[in-house]
Every structure is written in C-alpha cells, then in structure tokens.
C-alpha cells in the first residue's frame, strides 16, 4: 500500500483516539475510586456544548475549554452526590445524566441559537487549531522518520498532546503518589481506607471530579478542536466506547492508551473504506456498516475475547460502614 495512505490513516488515528483516550482516563480515575460512571457520554456532551457556546460568545478557545471543564466537574459532582452521598444506583444516575445532556443541550441550543441545536460556527481564533511542532518542517523530507514526525506526531491541536501526555502522568499519579495509592485502595477496599483514617467520601469525590475534568477536556475537543461548533448528540457513543476500552485496558493507563488507540485506528481505517469495493465481490461497503463498526467492535471486545478483566473490587457499590 502507498506509504502516504498509511501515514494519513495513522494521523487520523491519533486525532480520533484523543477524545476516547481522554474519556477513558476520566473513567479510570472514577472507577479506580469505586464509582462506575456510565454518564461520561453525557458529561462529554454537556462539556462540548459549554465549550462551543462559551468559545463563540467570548471568542476564546481557552474560555471555552474552561467552561467545558467546569461543566464536566459540575455533572460529576451530581453523579458523585447520587452515588456517594445518597448511595443511589450508579448506573441509573449515569443514564439519567446521559439523557439530561442529550435533552438539555438540544433544548438550550435550539432556544438560544435557533440552528437546530447547533452552536454557531467558530472562527479559527476561537478554536484549538493544529500546532506545528518545532522542526517539523525541517525534517519533513528525511525519509521515513521525517513524515512520521511532521505528519503524525506534529500537526495536532494542543488537546491531543494533553491527552497523550495524560497517560504517563496518570500512571505516575496512580503508582507513585500518595493520592494514587489511596485512590487505588478505596476502589478495592474502602473499609481499609476508612480504618486507616482516610475519608472514603472525599477520595471518591476526588475521583469523580477528576473524571469530570477529563470529560470536560474530551467534550471541548469534540466541539472546539475536532469541529468548529457543537452539534446535538455529537459525542455519538464515544463515552461508551471509552468505557469499553477501559475494561479492555483492565483499568490501567498504559493499557488505556493501547485500547483507545485500537478504537481510533479502526475508526480511521473506516474512512478510506467508505464507498470502497470489496475485492472480488464487486460489493460496496455500505456507509452504515462503517458507522456501526466501532459499536460492533465494542461488543466483540466486551464478549471477552480479551482474557479476564477484573474490575476494582468495590466498584459500583456505595460504601456503608459495617457494624
């Protein structure tokens, strides 16, 4: 195959991986703390809306990003309140947040902007555009490695770099800091944390709050980096796919990179496949098959062709002191 096509697929893979990776890492913090969060999808949508709206009103991508993160945190706290303080069903709370996001963003979008729920198109100054990394132009003509650096590593928005940098950072936090030790402990055995004199509630709120930050980054990426506005339901299941990737990654940040890149790569692969003929059959690959492919892939991965994934032991269960 033409090397240029390979590079272009890898380049799109990186772009498409970023939002899944951000959402997946967010889920990792939450689930490691013992709170399952099926509402990441909804939080991404809320954040995307906040980013699109604020970036348009202020003309600043950074303010848009800030708004996205704040909104992500706000809904994480709602989820935290339901699951930690009220000890409600975490799945149901997440589902409620997803519907709330789908409904409220479309409602407000239509009421405020009258463009079928979309926020207005952003100028480039109000978006995160591609960055050219230093030396990218200089090395472009170096065979093999040149295009790898200039074409794939360079040329993405800052949020992509944030996403990939967050992987080693998360690893360091989890395995080298006090906070990480406690976070991992509270997801496995909250009673051990409680008797060690550490607040289970505080740690879990910290976990879901960080999840909100990441969901905010992921949402902002969708609206003001990958696209130039918010559109209803633009998250299109990315949050759910991120959760599947998290299972696939066995709740490990490095695994998360691999799992989400797999999803990103397959989505990138689907782009040139659209309308392509299947060799020998003369059939066209229907567009719908391409659209459905990430979801089918998720089901196949979840069906456990991945070995046994053991979730954090206390995940999904509210902590109640035993007498």
């Amino acid at each position: 195959m033409d090397l240029a096509i390979v590079y272009s697929i890898l380049d799109s893979s990186v772009r498409l991986t970023a939002p899944i990776l951000l959402a997946c890492l967010g889920g990792l913090y939450s689930e490691r703390s013992g709170v399952f969060d099926i509402g990441i999808e909804g939080k991404m949508l809320f954040s995307a809306f906040a980013a699109g709206a604020v970036a348009w009103h202020s003309g600043s991508a950074w303010l848009g990003l800030g708004a996205a993160v704040l909104v992500g945190i706000a809904f994480s706290l709602l989820h935290g309140y339901a699951s930690i303080t009220q000890r409600g069903n975490q799945i149901i709370s997440g589902v409620a947040i997803n519907f709330l996001a789908a409904g409220l963003t479309a409602l407000l979008g239509k009421a405020w902007y009258g463009q079928g729920g979309k926020t207005p198109q952003l100028a480039n100054e109000a978006r995160f555009t591609s960055l050219t990394l230093p030396g990218a132009d200089a090395v472009k003509d170096v065979p093999f490695l040149g295009p790898l650096y200039s074409g794939i590593v360079s040329g993405h928005s800052i949020l992509v770099y944030v996403a990939f940098f967050a992987v080693p950072f998360t690893w360091w936090v989890l395995f080298r800091t006090r906070f990480g030790l406690r976070l991992r402990a509270v997801g496995e055995n909250p009673a051990a944390v409680d008797t060690a004199g550490i607040s289970v509630v505080w740690l879990r709120y910290a976990g879901v709050t960080i999840c909100g930050v990441f969901a905010g980054l992921a949402g902002a990426y969708l609206a003001i980096a990958q696209s130039a506005n918010f559109a209803p339901n633009m998250s299109a299941g990315t949050g759910f796919i991120a959760l599947a990737a998290l299972i696939f990654a066995k709740w490990n940040p490095v695994g998360a990179l691999g799992a989400t890149f797999l999803f990103g790569f397959l989505q990138a692969l689907a782009i040139p496949l659209q309308g392509a003929q299947i060799p020998g059959l003369g059939w066209q690959v229907p567009v719908q098959a391409i659209t459905a492919s990430p979801y089918i892939l998720t089901v196949i991965l979840l069906a456990g062709f991945i070995g046994k994934a053991i979730p954090p032991k206390a995940g999904g269960v509210a902590y109640v002191k035993e007498r």
Binding site: R87, G88, S93, F99, G103, A111
Partner: peptide, 25 residues
C-alpha cells in the same frame, strides 16, 4: 417555540434521576 420537544427528554432524565438514582433523597 423556545421550548422544543427536547424538554420531554429533560423531564424524563430528571424523573430517572429523582425516582432512580436519588430515590432516598
């Protein structure tokens, strides 16, 4: 017209939230 039918989805979500996740509130 400013209250589109998405409002129904919002109420639906709120009912799920209050009757489901926050049932003890």
């Amino acid at each position: 017209p400013s209250i589109s039918r998405d409002m129904i989805l919002v109420i639906q979500a709120l009912v799920i939230l209050f009757a489901g996740a926050l049932e003890n509130l």
